[in-house]
Simulated assay, not measured.
Amino acid sequence: MRALVVVGLLAVVALVFVVVALVRDTQGEAGLAGGCPEGAPLADVKLRERKDVKINVLNSTDRPGLASQVADEFSNRQFQVKKTANEKKQIDDVAVLRYGPKGVGSAHLLRAYFLNNAKDGYDAKRKDDTVDVVLGNSFQQLATTTEVNQALGDLGAPVAPPGSCPMPIDK
């Protein structure tokens, strides 16, 4: 009989402990946009699969046909290539990734294809989820699958750019 009283008492103490922990939980809104400045854009920080990433490939070099060549490589890797074009202004970087709040997770994945050497071109006012991949004069080639996986490990999880807030995970 004493054993049942002790077990019952332990169960009541455990129940009280759980209720107190749930009531005092300060992380209930973790990962949500709570606490963000009013009007801050919600950044989609979900790491996208290749088949879900929409890109435009732009050639900002003097090498003719580079955008089409790289677009074919991205298509072969299951990316959705929307358009290719030439930029008038040349850049010396490896690449510039231009994207808006809806393209944060996609740009994070693409950054790995340039071994984290692509320059960031975040634009808070951009409304679509397409990423512009602007190829520069320092571009040599896209990373291999193994190199991409290693680069993703080095990069960690996508982070909301300054001035934006992470979108709730379930959206």
Rank of each mutant, 00 (worst) to 15 (best):
D25A: 10
D25L: 05
D25C: 03
G28D: 05
E29D: 13
E29N: 12
G31T: 12
L32R: 11
G34F: 03
C36S: 06
C36L: 02
E38H: 09
P41W: 03
P41N: 03
L42V: 09
L42E: 11
V45N: 02
V45I: 14
V45H: 02
V45F: 03
L47E: 15
L47T: 12
R48I: 09
E49C: 10
E49Q: 14
R50H: 13
K51A: 14
D52I: 05
V53I: 15
K54R: 15
K54P: 10
N56P: 09
N56F: 13
L58W: 10
L58V: 15
R63I: 14
A67S: 13
S68K: 10
A71L: 09
E73R: 08
R77H: 12
R77E: 11
Q78W: 09
F79M: 11
F79N: 08
Q80Y: 13
V81F: 12
K82Y: 15
K82S: 15
K83W: 14
K83P: 11
T84Y: 08
A85H: 14
E87N: 14
E87Q: 14
E87L: 14
K88P: 11
K89L: 13
D92F: 12
D92P: 07
V94A: 00
V94I: 01
V94M: 00
A95H: 04
V96C: 01
G100N: 03
G100Q: 04
G100K: 00
P101T: 02
K102P: 02
K102V: 03
V104L: 05
V104R: 01
S106P: 01
A107D: 03
H108K: 02
L109G: 07
L110D: 02
L110V: 04
L115I: 11
N116I: 07
K119I: 11
D120S: 07
Y122P: 02
A124W: 04
K125S: 00
K125W: 00
K127H: 08
D129H: 07
T130F: 10
T130C: 09
D132I: 03
L135P: 04
S138Q: 11
Q141I: 00
T145E: 15
Q150L: 12
Q150F: 09
D154V: 15
V159G: 08
V159Q: 13
V159F: 07
V159D: 10
V159K: 12
V159I: 15
A160T: 06
P162L: 10
P162V: 14
G163L: 05
